[in-house]
Amino acid sequence: AGLGAPGAGPAASRAGRNAGQVCLAGTRLLVEEPVAEEFTRRFVEKATALRQGDPRDESTDIGPTIHPRQLEKIDGFVRRAVAAGARAVIGGHRKDGQYYAPTLLTGVTQDSEIVQEEVFGPVLTLQTFTGEDEAVRLANDTRFGLAATVATGDRERAERVSAQLVAGTVWVNCFFVRDLQAPFGGSRQSGVGREGGTWSFDFYCDLKNTVTAPNGWSQDHG
């Protein structure tokens, strides 16, 4: 969720790392209406400069899709979204080999498949909002809740919004910063329990509950 920070555009374009094939990828961009045009311009400028190629090459920004079936799945999501009225600001098509062009879709609706499902490809959607309540409602209106990112220059707003987001991890003005001692996991259909640090002990333990009557077996107890 991007809240009023046009400078988040270049950062958001990096959501295509690992070709979008990562559970923590921020694929739904929520941008405050007054900065949406500037945000989109900066996003497109940065995204079009990304280099796709061999991941072993240090100059590569985005590698290939893992399998032809996944490439077909990604393309299917995009084609159905466009058929339903979405517009590809950039991308929206396959490239030679196992590559899908970095894609940004606008004109999507909250109930559309491309918004509600996980694509696992270099595909992002952009929706605008006019107030915090609307932003939080849109952000929470899915069956998933692994991670969210808030971009804002207002510290109080960051705290306010972060507290309302249904997600196991919320990043504020950063992305993919992890401390392995901190709890990690998702909400809703993004998982159960938490890994990391002492939080993971119970998750990986097989606990036994033994109950003993203080007076033992007797006729009084049947």
Rank of each mutant, 00 (worst) to 15 (best):
R56H: 11
L50D: 05
I90V: 15
A49W: 00
P6H: 05
N215E: 11
I114N: 01
D220N: 13
S200A: 15
T142R: 04
L30V: 05
A135V: 04
D133H: 12
A8S: 08
L138F: 12
V78N: 01
A49E: 07
G186H: 12
G185V: 09
D141S: 12
R160N: 15
D133K: 09
A88V: 04
S190N: 14
E32P: 00
L180S: 14
A15E: 06
G186I: 12
A15I: 04
L138D: 05
I74T: 01
A147E: 05
N209R: 14
R56T: 13
T198W: 09
R155V: 14
G185D: 02
D61F: 03
G63S: 06
Y204G: 13
P34W: 04
C174P: 05
L105V: 13
S112V: 00
F120V: 07
A5T: 09
G121F: 04
R94L: 04
L180H: 13
A19R: 03
F144G: 01
L30R: 03
A151Q: 15
S190E: 06
A86E: 05
T152P: 11
K46L: 02
E33N: 05
T40E: 04
G92Y: 02
E113I: 02
A147G: 14
R157W: 11
V136L: 01
R157Q: 13
L126H: 00
Q219V: 11
V161L: 08
E72H: 05
T128S: 14
G20A: 03
E195C: 13
T152L: 02
G216W: 08
A11M: 14
F39W: 07
T169E: 09
G97D: 02
F203P: 10
A25Y: 03
Q219N: 15
R94A: 13
Q189Y: 10
I114M: 03
G26L: 12
I90N: 06
L146N: 13
D57G: 07
G222W: 07
T212N: 01
A83G: 10
S112W: 05
K208A: 13
V170R: 02
T65S: 03
R79S: 12
E45G: 12
I62V: 12
L138T: 05
D96F: 06
A167P: 01
A88N: 07
